[in-house]
Simulated assay, not measured.
Amino acid sequence: MPFIALSSATLWGLPYADTLLISYSLLIVTFLAGMLWSMSLQYQQPIWLVVFSNLIMLASWGLISIHNMPGIFYAISVLFIALYLVESFTLKDLYPKGFFALRSQLTFVAVLSLLTTQIAS
């Protein structure tokens, strides 16, 4: 899994591993926000979900431009957790069976990798 590999590479001090972890993480956050946007429109959910998904995307794009910010891995973790919580309260039952369980596990691994990297650096 890229999160574990890039987090490990960052902790080992490999050049540019931290930048790759930030970029990959924000790419995934943006993809998940786009998925929330799509599901919100497809299932005629409240408009605030569309606005929320766009705010997450804008936050991701903002963070990629200041990738050397102290606490960047905390900030990205907050985006992952915010998306997960919103989806778990609004769209969880609309996803195919088993999808949200997998999504939960992957989000846990991503956040754990990001927080480990932040704490260790």
Rank of each mutant, 00 (worst) to 15 (best):
Y95N: 03
S38F: 04
I66Y: 03
I119A: 03
I22L: 05
F100D: 01
P70V: 12
Y95D: 01
M35L: 05
Q42P: 02
W12D: 15
L32P: 01
M39D: 10
I66D: 02
P15K: 15
K92V: 09
T30G: 07
N68G: 05
A75W: 00
L6R: 15
A9V: 00
F3P: 01
L41C: 02
V78I: 14
S53K: 12
V111K: 12
M39C: 02
S7F: 03
L32V: 02
F73C: 07
S23D: 08
G62Q: 12
L11N: 13
V109K: 11
N54I: 03
S38N: 14
P46A: 03
L115W: 13
L58I: 05
L114W: 08
D93E: 13
A120G: 02
G13L: 09
I64C: 06
D93F: 10
S65W: 01
P96S: 10
Q44H: 11
Q118Y: 07
W12L: 15
A110V: 07
Y16N: 09
S53A: 15
V111Y: 08
W37A: 00
A17T: 07
Y43S: 02
I76W: 02
T19K: 15
I22T: 14
F108G: 00
I47V: 06
A120V: 03
I81G: 00
F89K: 13
S88M: 13
F99D: 01
Y24M: 12
L36N: 07
W48V: 04
A59S: 14
Y84A: 05
L85V: 13
L85T: 09
L20E: 09
P96D: 06
S40N: 09
S121E: 12
F108D: 11
D18I: 00
V29P: 05
A120T: 12
I119T: 13
L83W: 06
H67W: 01
T19I: 06
L41R: 15
L114C: 10
Q105G: 01
G13R: 09
L102R: 14
G71T: 05
L27S: 10
H67C: 06
D93Y: 13
I64S: 14
I28R: 14
G34V: 02
L79Y: 03
I56V: 15
S38L: 04
Q105M: 06
I81K: 11
G62V: 05
L114I: 04
I4N: 08
Y43I: 02
L55Q: 15
I81A: 13
S8R: 09
L94M: 08
G71P: 02
M57A: 12
L58M: 14
Q44P: 02
I72K: 00
A9H: 04
F52M: 11
L94Y: 12
G98V: 08
A33Y: 09
G98I: 11
A120S: 14
Q118G: 06
Q42V: 03
G34Y: 10
T117Y: 02
S88F: 04
L83F: 01
Y74M: 07
L27K: 12
L83D: 04
F80C: 05
F31H: 12
P70I: 04
Y95Q: 05
S113E: 13
